[in-house]
């Protein structure tokens, strides 16, 4: 302690000796007045900082472990189909013969893969023009109360549980499709119509963000060059927002691809290659939800379902990757 104080005294004396501006006095500074212990120990704030940082890192580590565990678990079981049960991976991807209970030569998921992509793409295809129209209305043509109302409606659409969508689909859309197109009313068309409403708010709100991100000056510059509102929208706003609209569509597709319950209630759940839009079919998710209670852990039918889950997981990674790719490009 005495040593420290001496050191400090030395520093102060040196400073006084070296000072170039004579009228500045170091009077108030006396090593005896300084609590060296307090200054050399971590303060309360520093300790709080350590705590805060520690808690944050702990949370990150736990979540990281959880994610690794989920991926590992799904991967392990999903791959067991191919490793333990010796199912040919090409057979799994390209065969439409789905009857895992009958042995390893009957594990073909192609019908479900095709159906999943069909409902996803069709839903996005129908939803995108409407989303862009609604987003344009909300950002370019209207402001104030009506926009807020639309915003709340969109948020409401997001908040409706998928079982409710499924129920409405079952009670309204299925009979309607049955009446118009014949058949049972279950199928890709019905599922698409339900998914269209479900992805609409996702695509719309992200598209609204895309339009809002475009500087007002760009629109003004365009109108100052004699462009009408529609010309400005068509040539500047849509063009400038293009990559972000793509991102919005992909987020919508990810939602549609992963939706299980509402689709399961409306698609008919028959694992058949879809040759038209109004015959019963099954997606990866609908097959997973409808069959998971019917298999025994560790058996081939169970592992086959895990493989479907793995495929869904990989697809969601692909969607995320696409979003990043587009983000980087723009």
């Amino acid at each position: 302690m005495a040593k420290k104080e001496q050191d400090l005294q030395q520093v102060v004396e040196n400073a006084i000796a070296e000072q170039k501006v004579p009228h500045v006095k170091f009077k108030g500074i006396d090593p005896k007045n300084i609590d060296v212990d307090r200054l050399t120990k971590p303060s309360k704030e520093t300790r709080q900082e350590w705590w805060g940082r520690g808690l944050t890192f702990l949370a990150i580590i736990l979540i990281g472990m959880l994610i690794v565990a989920i991926i590992g678990f799904v991967g392990m079981h999903g791959l067991a189909t191919f490793i333990d049960n010796k199912v040919n991976i090409f057979h799994f991807l390209f065969s439409t013969d789905w009857n895992p209970g009958a042995g390893k030569n009957h594990v073909g998921a192609a019908a479900m893969i095709v159906t999943s992509f069909a409902v996803t793409l069709l839903a996005a295809l129908i939803a995108t023009p409407f989303s862009i129209a609604v987003a344009l209305f909300m950002t370019e043509y209207e402001s104030g109360k009506r926009v807020q109302l639309l915003q709340s409606v969109m948020e409401l659409l997001v908040g409706i549980p998928s079982v409710v969508y499924g129920f409405i689909g079952l009670m309204v859309v299925v009979p309607a499709v049955r009446t118009i197109f014949g058949g049972t009313g279950f199928g890709i068309l019905t599922a698409t119509l339900i998914l269209f409403v479900m992805v609409l708010p996702t695509i719309t709100s992200l598209t609204v963000d895309a339009f809002k991100a475009i500087p007002k000056d760009l629109r003004k510059s365009s109108s100052a060059l004699g462009a009408t509102k529609w010309q400005t929208i068509y040539h500047v706003v849509l063009r400038a927002a293009c990559s972000r609209i793509m991102t919005a569509i992909i987020f919508g597709m990810a939602r549609a691809f992963g939706e299980a319950l509402a689709v399961q209630m409306a698609i008919g759940n028959a694992v058949l290659m879809p040759y038209n839009l109004v015959s019963p079919a099954a997606t990866l998710t609908s097959q997973l939800t409808s069959q998971m209670g019917n298999t025994v852990m560790g058996t081939l039918p169970n592992n086959a379902l895990w493989s479907l889950a793995l495929l869904l997981l990989i697809m969601s990674l692909v969607f995320n990757f696409l979003v990043h790719l587009i983000g980087k490009k723009s």
Binding site: P215, D217, L218, K220, S221, L225
Partner: peptide
């Protein structure tokens, strides 16, 4: 015609 304060190229 008009030119703005911030450059506003499309």
């Amino acid at each position: 015609g008009m030119v703005f304060q911030q450059p506003t190229p499309f």
